[in-house]
């Protein structure tokens, strides 16, 4: 609603809109604040966004463009309140306002201000995803696909292109939190393999390839093994030539969340 209200009066009242979308960064362009923000970034953000903010588990933040909005206030809000539906937590309870602005200032200082070159064809990539690659056997996009692997509905927002590429070619390079492989051997010598849904000192929960949920008490089975490897096949480097890989990446990069059907 806020955006519509702003658009409605855009021609006349740009300044008012800026005020409505939130606050101005009091430290904008301050190199010292950017430096302090860099320190805080390393402490609080680098785990997901990489030590140089170039992304990893979280999006690349040096692209100069942000899915949450382009204003400083948008960046402030996502740091303070987190981003619903993603792994981005809120830092508002941990960082003072001034420190959040330092982070914003740092992010502005590392922006390369150039878009990522998406060379592939999205539509072709979508076909590869659901067809040749059989990615949809284990991954879900909106209401379609499998459930054993991570849901990719937001993959384009949550992951950098480089990370997505690495994940396809080398699924074990980094493991999405919560997706180790669990192998259980029961007392009657049945082996059940799946992705972790829970794991503690006394029990293990997993989902197998048939999307069946299993729960075991460790004391009731012969063995429970957890491995920090992915169940995803590691043959995509051979399966996809470079051009197809780029198409697939273009598709994954386009996945930005639930798309509501037009009425």
């Amino acid at each position: 609603m806020r955006r519509f209200r702003c658009l409605w009066v855009m021609g006349l009242m740009t300044a008012v809109c800026a005020a409505q979308t939130g606050k101005k960064n009091p430290l904008a362009g301050d190199p010292r604040a950017a430096d302090e923000g860099r320190m805080m970034f390393r402490g609080s953000c680098s785990l997901c966004h990489g030590i140089k903010a170039e992304g990893g588990r979280g999006p690349d933040l040096t692209l100069g463009t942000f899915s949450v909005g382009e204003a400083d206030a948008d960046l402030y809000n996502v740091i303070a309140n987190g981003s619903a539906g993603t792994e981005m937590p809120e830092f508002g309870s941990r960082l003072e306002e001034e420190n959040i602005w330092r982070l914003v200032t740092f992010l502005r200082s590392v922006a390369r201000r150039e878009g990522v070159a998406i060379t592939g064809n999205r539509a072709s990539g979508e076909k590869l995803f659901w067809g040749k690659g059989q990615c949809g056997q284990c991954h879900r996009v909106q209401a379609q696909g499998g459930r054993m692997g991570p849901d990719l509905t937001l993959a384009g927002r949550q992951r950098s292109l480089a990370y997505l590429k690495e994940s396809i070619l080398d699924p074990n390079a980094d493991l999405t939190p919560g997706y180790p492989t669990i192998t259980v051997v029961t007392r009657d010598a049945k082996t059940i393999v799946g992705t972790q849904r829970g794991f503690d000192n006394f029990s293990a929960q997993l989902m197998d390839a048939g999307e069946n949920f299993h729960s075991f008490l460790k004391s009731d089975v012969r063995s429970v093994k957890r491995e920090f490897r992915s169940l995803m096949p590691d043959n995509y480097r051979r399966l996809f030539p470079e051009l197809e890989l780029n198409d697939l990446l273009a598709y994954l990069h386009s996945l930005r969340g639930l798309v509501e059907e037009k009425k």
Partner: peptide, 19 residues
């Protein structure tokens, strides 16, 4: 890292080892 009173002063951080 330059020191500023009352601000975080850690000289960087630690990260987990993947896998």
């Amino acid at each position: 890292q330059e020191f500023r009173e009352g601000q975080l002063y850690t000289g960087s951080t630690g990260g987990p080892i993947p896998l």
